[in-house]
Design a binder for these strands. Structure first.
Lengths: 250, 250
DNA sequence: AAGTGGTCTAGACCACCAT
DNA sequence: TGGTGGTCTAGACCACTTC
């Protein structure tokens, strides 16, 4: 407690904090470009690796986004997404004044034995059953936000791929198959963007992510969807509500 | 997807993958020590910084934990914690055969104006009201897992600090104040361990965390607790349940 | 005293992108 | 072509832990 303020903070962290303050105070406005790593190094009389470490810290904290090999920019405030709301991501973004978008990466019918046991078990299906695998990239104000990896039983939703999958898939299930998602369990895990997903999103690998596995059932408890979603943790704040009557207590 | 196998993967990532495979295949068992950064560098004919980057990747992925300046060790499988279960962390760990522990970092009575508006608003209190601020470090098998930062209104729970706060606080509220937590909203955000919390946990800074802000009310809807919990994301898999009708088989 | 991770330096080469 | 981030090297010093 004797010394403080800057008690043996490493240099790269002090620099990161300095820049973070400049961002929060508005000196560095949203979408403005940070100095390049070499510029920063020269300005501050430090090595480029140290400047780089500082910027990396800010990227991990979500204050800054790297745009390819062009430079690092001050990021917009995080989007908020309520995982336990009945409203989907699309609707929540729209309500917040953000423009949602979706892009189909792939949509195909595959045999159960090619997608692994975890998924087929989740859908209560066997290796010889067919499932639709739909991969979508969803955006908020053109920023990539989440990759959705969804599986639907083919025998329950024949010809699902003939519909416009850019729209709400749940909407299609309701309207054309008269099946309503009635409940779901979501399993979350903090993880990291691996190279392939990062490439799909057009961002740097190793960003923090929230991986969500979702098991959805219809009103009669039939499994109708297994989804593996990968959300960018640096751009989203997640909200979860617990049940109305909780009996906590150890 | 275009090319294949090892398509321009950076060296440190290839090495990380190699070690990850050795961990998953059991060649490197749980709790075994990895080679030191210098050893690894010499073995593989690379620089120490590259070896370090590889190990850092594994740490971020949760496969490896650093133990101070002693070395890096293969970590145990992640603990699972169901955020929406009525059972608390203590009970869930115990049920999973894990030994839960808790340590009081600090427990004090403070004035509202010293803890910030966010907290006092959450508790529906003013700047001149008093609150108890209790900081606890909780462990699983002696591994630090979460820092709990809890605030309770002093006028509702007089002399709360006289009880043994190592036990379940909710249990104390029920037993001695006849107040039962009836519901809560939790707000989650992926974040990073800053230096001070990391030091408290005895781990490296910059580990991924799940920050949870919890607003708990009694049966009459009176706010009785605001909590800011910081969970280690590299050691826990979080579960959340959503949806009105839950009755999945499993 | 020896070994460890944590930090920092001053270079280097590359692929990519804007111009 | 020149600037950028991404990677990598071969050193260095420090604080801390274990012996």
């Amino acid at each position: 407690m004797s010394d403080n303020g800057t008690p043996a903070q490493p240099l790269y962290r002090q620099i990161a904090e300095q820049i973070a303050e400049e961002i929060e105070s508005g000196i560095r406005p949203v979408n403005s470009k940070l100095p390049s790593e070499r510029e920063l190094a020269e300005e501050l009389g430090i090595s480029r690796m140290t400047a780089r470490a500082a910027i990396n810290t800010l990227v991990l904290q979500g204050l800054v986004v790297r745009r390819g090999r062009i430079g690092a920019y001050v990021s917009r405030p995080k989007f908020r997404f309520d995982l336990s709301s009945p409203r989907g991501l699309h609707e929540q973004l729209k309500k917040a004044g953000v423009e949602p978008g979706a892009k189909i990466i792939s949509a195909e019918k595959v045999l159960g034995n090619s997608v692994g046991n975890e998924i087929m078990n989740a859908l209560a299906m066997g290796e010889q059953d067919e499932v639709y695998r739909i991969i979508r990239l969803r955006t908020a104000n053109d920023e990539p936000i989440v990759i959705e990896n969804s599986y639907f039983p083919a025998k329950i939703f024949p010809d699902l791929l003939d519909f416009n999958l850019t729209d709400s898939i749940y909407g299609i299930l309701k309207k054309y198959f008269s099946i309503t998602p009635a409940g779901s369990i979501q399993e979350m895990e903090i993880s990291y963007l691996d190279s392939q997903w990062a490439e799909l999103m057009g961002v740097t690998a190793d960003l923090p992510t929230l991986e969500v596995k979702r098991y959805t059932v219809a009103e009669d408890n039939t499994p109708i969807e297994f989804a593996h979603d990968i959300y960018r943790g640096d751009r989203i704040t997640f909200i979860a509500r617990t049940g109305p009557t909780l009996n906590l207590g150890t």
